[in-house]
Design a protein around this nucleic acid. Structure first.
Lengths: 181, 181
DNA sequence: GCACAGTTGTGCACCAAGTGCAAGTTGCTT
DNA sequence: AAGCAACTTGCACTTGGTGCACAACTGTGC
């Protein structure tokens, strides 16, 4: 049910745009009442962003499976790469991503959801850092920076209309922030 | 007028919380009609976040005044420090920041507004990077990472209830992401 | 076959955010 | 005085979102 709703919603959003689609239309298209829709999704935004939370969990699972002595940046990159694999509709990918970045509140929600990945990922890399009172904080900073690189890469990937592989851009971003110039 | 509205809004938000305050109340408290309020602020969120855009411009101005051959991370830090100076009500600071982080959409909007600082700051540091086809992108990644460090530091500062200076935490965050472990 | 409880869907009334429009107000210019 | 522009306001309306009570279906034990 949840996935049916999310699917029909993405369909309509892709066709008409996010703002131009009402939740009533989504509910009608899915054949349920408006109230039922709100039983499954707290907000309209969630209809478009629900996938992100699940992606976060997949990434966390992947991260947890990396060897404990691996460099944390390497581990994070490996974990992120699942995003390239679980892509359901590669041809619509550009369309969907550009939708997420067109709308202000949607872009904000998207960034926020990804930022919440920090809560999942940071605890997994904290034990790999050298002991320190602020190790937990450092872990959050590192994960946050990695996610920022991913976001910057996605933005650039969108600007280039997908002509450059996402993770090439990601590598460029990470190199840019971690290399002294 | 704009500042009067923003001021009364922040007052009420601090007293009653963001969600528990209606825009009608803000308008009434400021002595104007609800409609007038929406002539000055596009959304309720803007009432709470309008200051951030201005802060971004102040930071950009400060950044532009740094010597062109200075390390970009050093320049960015110097520019950010204005945040410690333009603080209007230092005693309410904790209160205000925790309000921004309590509400989901507000936290998202806050992060998004700060992310938009990238648009202002990246062009200023791009010319300082070594020539490259992707220099603009690299500049955005660096600025984005620096802002992420600032946000992580703010979050930690909030968690510690302000007991550690914000920019000590910022330095810790930057060191964490830029130092190979 | 029947009463039982638990989940799930639905209708309805309601509140708050936000917009478009048309009319009123203020104040300044000529 | 008349006219013009900018600002303010009321009003009706759409949309997102919530609380609540009631129906429909499900499986369980008797």
């Amino acid at each position: 049910m949840r996935s049916l709703l999310a699917q029909t919603a993405m369909q309509l959003f892709a066709e008409k745009g996010f703002d131009e689609t009402t939740v009533d239309e989504v509910a009608a298209a899915a054949g349920v009442s408006r109230r039922t829709l709100f039983n499954y999704f707290r907000t309209k935004e969630d209809l478009a962003l629900s996938g992100l939370s699940e992606q976060g969990e997949v990434i966390a699972a992947r991260l947890g499976a990396r060897p404990a002595d691996e460099d944390v940046w390497v581990s994070l990159r490996h974990a992120f790469v699942v995003l390239d694999e679980i892509e359901v509709s590669p041809e619509n990918r550009l369309e969907i991503v550009s939708m997420l970045f067109d709308n202000d509140s949607l872009r904000a929600g998207h960034a926020e959801k990804q930022a919440r990945w920090t809560d999942l990922l940071a605890p997994l890399i904290e034990p790999r850092l050298p002991a320190s009172e602020s190790r937990g904080f450092q872990a959050r900073a590192i994960v946050g920076a990695a996610i920022t690189c991913l976001q910057a890469a996605t933005e650039e990937w969108l600007r280039l209309r997908g002509s450059t592989p996402l993770f090439d851009l990601y590598d460029t971003a990470v190199a840019a922030i971690r290399t002294s110039n």
